[in-house]
Simulated assay, not measured.
Amino acid sequence: MLRVYWITITAVCVGLEGVSGDKIIDGTEAKAHSRPYMAFLRIRKGKNMYNCDGFLIHPNFILTAAHCQGENITVRLGAHNLLKNERSQQVIPVEKIIPHECYNEITLVDDIMLLKLKHRARITCEVNTISIPKINEPLDLNKCSVAGWGDTKTNGTGSSVLREVNINVRFKSLSQIFGRGSGKKGACHGDSGGPLVCTGTSNIPTAVGIVSYGPKRCEDPGSEVYTKVSAYRDWIKKKINASSSA
């Protein structure tokens, strides 16, 4: 499998005007605000703007993929339709970008990053945190899904509305999870950094993975690769504690 970053690059002057809502490969539109942990990221790097996703794990912190780094990042929480001025939305600049120290741009090992928000997110019905798993927590890997504002096809455009698709976990390594939906169902460009959500203890939705990379063409067969969140639980806790006390 080719290791292809799943970010969407747009020119600085190009926004989301005119984009379609038919995104996430062969998926469906999510019920509005049914995933209150989802975060839409606008990332500036040089003259380019990148789109990634992330998820709120603490009122002050977003978890996402390390390959979504940039010089400046703005987080949008509480969104469903990015083209609408929804009252639920909270736009918060990122104060500190914290990629994993061992992240490798070639192998995409340790593709995980924390974003410290400039101020705390206001917890509401549309904006809330999601649990991350303990190292040995029992999980129902038969009930997993991924969501995002990414493309439905290679070289497509970003979605205006959040879309979702079910994912079948195929196998796990020490630090990664491999999975794919049935047929061509799955994530695509622009979905990087979003959570692979499975059922955890007491049927609580739990972010077990982070969208990292997939086939060169989203429609091609093969597994998508997710950073395994539980493998980095100690790192996450350490970085949150250090940044919160700074």
Score class of each variant (00 low, 15 high):
residue 112 I to L: 11
residue 102 C to P: 00
residue 34 S to I: 01
residue 17 E to I: 04
residue 240 I to Y: 03
residue 212 S to R: 05
residue 4 V to F: 10
residue 238 K to M: 13
residue 173 S to W: 08
residue 87 R to K: 11
residue 112 I to Q: 05
residue 65 A to F: 06
residue 194 G to E: 02
residue 166 N to P: 03
residue 14 V to P: 00
residue 29 E to T: 02
residue 220 D to M: 14
residue 205 P to Y: 07
residue 102 C to E: 09
residue 72 N to P: 00
residue 12 V to C: 09
residue 214 G to Q: 12
residue 42 R to T: 14
residue 44 R to L: 02
residue 146 V to P: 07
residue 242 A to W: 08
residue 61 F to R: 02
residue 145 S to A: 13
residue 162 L to S: 04
residue 51 N to V: 06
residue 202 S to A: 15
residue 63 L to V: 08
residue 235 W to D: 13
residue 114 L to Y: 04
residue 105 E to D: 02
residue 231 A to V: 05
residue 18 G to L: 00
residue 188 C to E: 08
residue 55 F to T: 11
residue 200 G to A: 05
residue 217 R to H: 15
residue 138 P to E: 00
residue 205 P to W: 10
residue 173 S to P: 00
residue 147 A to G: 01
residue 191 D to C: 11
residue 106 I to P: 03
residue 4 V to Q: 14
residue 60 N to H: 13
residue 134 K to G: 14
residue 21 G to H: 03
residue 192 S to K: 11
residue 120 R to W: 11
residue 86 E to Q: 04
residue 209 G to D: 12
residue 222 G to L: 14
residue 59 P to M: 03
residue 198 C to I: 08
residue 160 S to K: 00
residue 181 G to Y: 06
residue 105 E to K: 13
residue 246 A to L: 09
residue 80 H to M: 04
residue 4 V to A: 11
residue 202 S to H: 15
residue 143 K to T: 14
residue 13 C to H: 04
residue 147 A to Y: 04
residue 180 R to C: 12
residue 126 E to S: 14
residue 69 Q to V: 06
residue 136 N to F: 14
residue 180 R to M: 07
residue 241 N to K: 12
residue 60 N to T: 02
residue 109 V to Y: 08
residue 29 E to I: 05
residue 193 G to N: 15
residue 176 Q to H: 15
residue 201 T to D: 04
residue 62 I to G: 05
residue 79 A to H: 03
residue 35 R to C: 07
residue 185 K to Q: 13
residue 48 N to K: 13
residue 159 S to C: 02
residue 95 E to K: 00
residue 214 G to S: 15
residue 98 I to C: 04
residue 177 I to F: 08
residue 70 G to F: 02
residue 94 V to R: 02
residue 90 Q to W: 00
residue 186 G to K: 03
residue 211 V to E: 15
residue 2 L to E: 15
residue 5 Y to G: 11
residue 3 R to V: 15
residue 3 R to L: 13
residue 102 C to D: 12
residue 65 A to G: 13
residue 166 N to A: 01
residue 46 G to R: 12
residue 207 A to H: 08
residue 57 I to A: 07
residue 155 N to A: 14
residue 182 S to D: 01
residue 220 D to G: 14
residue 186 G to E: 11
residue 146 V to Q: 07
residue 101 E to C: 04
residue 232 Y to C: 09
residue 189 H to R: 06
residue 125 C to H: 05
residue 7 I to C: 07
residue 22 D to V: 02
residue 6 W to G: 08
residue 115 L to R: 07
residue 46 G to W: 01
residue 210 I to Y: 15
residue 151 D to E: 14
residue 153 K to M: 12
residue 135 I to W: 01
residue 208 V to S: 09
residue 6 W to M: 10
residue 172 K to M: 07
